[in-house]
Design a protein around this nucleic acid. Structure first.
Lengths: 205, 205
DNA sequence: CACCCTAAGTGAACACCGTTCACACACTGT
DNA sequence: ACAGTGTGTGAACGGTGTTCACTTAGGGTG
């Protein structure tokens, strides 16, 4: 990844610090783990004073919330793209996209849900996280209105829970610590396929 | 919770610092969130110098690993107890115990899986976390040998994933932020009940 | 073009954090 | 009585998030 270092040559003003900080968070999180990401570290990576960050984000939490929101949207986009291919049933396709994104970007996946480091009331964040649930709910992303989460049926909730839990167990290292990524994906496919019988009878909740 | 403060009156030696530190972690985590738990804070709560902690735990990570292990075992015990009541199908009973433990002790639940703050190679921790998966696998806790996790069938994996994911979504605040605990449990019951069809055909994986 | 206003940077300072180290104390066994 | 060992202390280190007074660059207005 290329980090935006400075606007032009070595000027006083950076030009796009807010964006650069997000990239720095991603870079450091993927390389050293989410817990190791530091405001000062991000600033140093970009080549800027630590205090500069506070001109763009109220505090570390705000920066992390923005990062999590970006991660959620990235994942959602990936799920939409994958559904378009539609080589398998929509739910399986979308669910596997969810899992494989988590496997490829574990730090991002952790950041999305690390509520203690986030501002869960942030409207952008809320909307992004709920959209993810909606995407999994039926594979009808475009036709889903901005529905309250309470309207998810038991089957839809089950689908989200399964995919989310499976990804979490992988990312947290509780599962498949001896498997490579392909092995984990194969496991995921088998596991989610087993959900079929439960999703078949899909009366509204 | 009563914290063990000192051995007798105000002696130099504490007597059971290792245990007291675990209790302090629990106290602070449940009150202010896991992220706010600090070695110095624990020490101060007990009334001891910060450096004293290092005589019992190699570092903060070791303390957190011990705390997570204790949480895992507490949860496992609760699942076993709940299964003994057996008013519902074993899986539902055990799964609901998993969820409700997470709802009652969110900080503990987060600590169990916060791999970056844990030592995942710790044998006690590994054993405890795998036992949890085995407990959910079929509701036959006593007859489950110390099986490798790779031997979990797709249905068993699905069961663990669903319960784990549902609990995570609640604890992380992505789900049911407007519901009280009973409401969440009702949702959980409905969701896990929907798993029935998938678990019925339980050929070995 | 000269001016000022403001957004966006700096650097020093603060309190707190995990961790280390030399040291002090008190119990234990001989 | 006394050494030895396990368990506590207190000061110190570098790193962290955050604040604050300050400087600077650049755009809009006269």
């Amino acid at each position: 990844m290329r980090l935006i270092l400075r606007h032009k040559s070595s000027r006083y003003h950076h030009g796009s610090l807010a964006e650069s900080l997000l990239e720095a968070v991603e870079e450091l999180a993927e390389r050293f783990g989410l817990e190791a990401v530091t405001l000062r570290g991000c600033a140093k990576l970009i080549g800027v004073a630590p205090s500069a960050a506070f001109k763009h984000y109220r505090d570390k939490r705000a920066l992390f919330t923005a990062f999590a929101t970006r991660a959620l949207n990235l994942m959602a986009q990936r799920m939409i793209d994958q559904r378009a291919k539609a080589e398998e049933p929509p739910f399986l396709e979308v669910g596997l996209a969810y899992v494989s994104f988590g496997l490829e970007h574990p730090a991002m996946f952790q950041a999305m849900w690390r509520s203690e480091m986030l501002n869960p009331h942030d409207p952008d964040y809320r909307q992004a996280s709920q959209r993810l649930g909606a995407l999994l709910a039926g594979g009808f992303a475009d036709s889903v209105p901005d529905s309250d989460q309470r309207k998810l049926s038991p089957q839809e909730l089950l689908a989200w829970s399964s995919v989310h839990g499976l990804t979490g167990l992988f990312v947290e290292g509780a599962l498949g610590s001896g498997l490579d990524q392909e092995g984990k994906l194969a496991h995921a496919r088998a596991t989610l396929a087993a959900l079929g019988p439960s999703l078949a009878s899909k009366a509204a909740g």
